[in-house]
Amino acid sequence: MFFLLSMLLYSIAGAAQETEDLLKLVEKEKPKKEYVKYAFKSPRVINGHSMEFLAPGTMDFRILHRFGQVNEGFKNFFGLDQASMRMGFDFGLYRNLMVGVGRSTFRKELDAFAKYAPIMQSTGTKNSPVTVALAAGITMHTEPWADPSANNHFSSRLGYYYQVIVGRKFSEALSLQLTPTMVHTNLVPVSTQPNDVFAMGLGGRVKITNRIALTADYYYLFNGREKDFNYNPLSVGIDIETGGHVFQLHFSNATGMNERAFITETYNTWGKGEIRFGFNLSRIFQIKKQKQSM
């Protein structure tokens, strides 16, 4: 009897050990979680933020340059005699957190932003089919007051924007995103324009080759649009990657190059040929060494 009981216990223990070994084997075979990268080659599509983030410890020195209107013809050399620009410095803090500052010649405006992604597109265990990122920024124009004798307030120079970016890299060739946006301007240019403007952004990238891609972004304004005054901003371009640089050529009906400016102050329309040729130049610098894991 004792012998039979011992054999039974031994069989149970062996079966338990075998089950544990099988479970460990299954766990090892589970695909590890991997985050999807390079939905866009830049943290911006053209004008607006993209679902992409800078790597931790890197800085993106970015120059956005936009000429005058193409339809002005030869007298203004098809817009090339005029130019506006934004110079920015963006910093990657964590895999899903980055900040940036910039200065534009349009309205002599300073801006700063932070972008954070609580959810990032990934594969493997606990994967996510999309990236959800939150962006918030502040702008301050520094141009002289139109009427210096009036009771001007510093707060009248300020504007704010808030965005939710929902994007997905569908394949190596296609990435799309939606960007619900709210822009608040403390002092609007005309009394009929609201202080709060709501818009829906759409951005996309189509990869042509390993180094060339087509990009576009568009923002539809739900309110704040007035006939023959301001329009929905549309930009289309081509990205060219040259090693450490991303060079982008584009056409846009927007003059401003931060969210408050290009969403609420786009005064030109594609329908009348009031478009501007421009380029964006991005150079990534490693400013902090990455920690190497064993």
Rank of each mutant, 00 (worst) to 15 (best):
F3K: 12
I12M: 13
A13V: 00
Q17R: 02
L22D: 13
L23K: 13
P31L: 03
K32G: 10
K37M: 08
I46R: 13
N47R: 05
R62H: 08
L64H: 15
H65G: 08
H65T: 03
R66W: 10
F74Y: 12
F77N: 10
D81E: 14
M85G: 10
G88L: 00
D90H: 10
G92D: 04
G92N: 02
L97D: 15
L97C: 11
V99Q: 05
G100D: 14
V101S: 11
R103L: 05
R103E: 11
F106A: 10
L110P: 01
Y116S: 13
P118A: 13
I119R: 12
S122G: 11
T123W: 03
L134R: 02
A136S: 14
M140V: 05
N152A: 05
H153S: 10
S155K: 04
R157K: 11
L158K: 05
G159V: 07
G159D: 12
Y161D: 14
Y161A: 01
Y162E: 15
V166F: 07
G167Y: 02
R168D: 10
F170V: 03
F170K: 02
Q177E: 15
T179Y: 01
M182T: 10
H184T: 11
L187M: 09
V188C: 04
S191F: 03
L202Q: 00
R205E: 15
R205G: 11
I212C: 06
D217V: 00
Y218P: 00
R225D: 07
F229R: 09
Y231L: 00
P233F: 05
E241A: 15
G244M: 05
F247S: 14
F251P: 04
S252C: 00
S252E: 01
N253T: 05
N258M: 05
T266C: 08
Y267N: 11
N268S: 10
N268A: 07
W270P: 00
E274N: 05
F277H: 06
F279L: 00
S282A: 07
I284T: 15
Q286L: 02
Q286T: 13
K288N: 06
K289P: 02
Q290G: 02
Q290N: 04
Q290E: 13
K291Q: 06
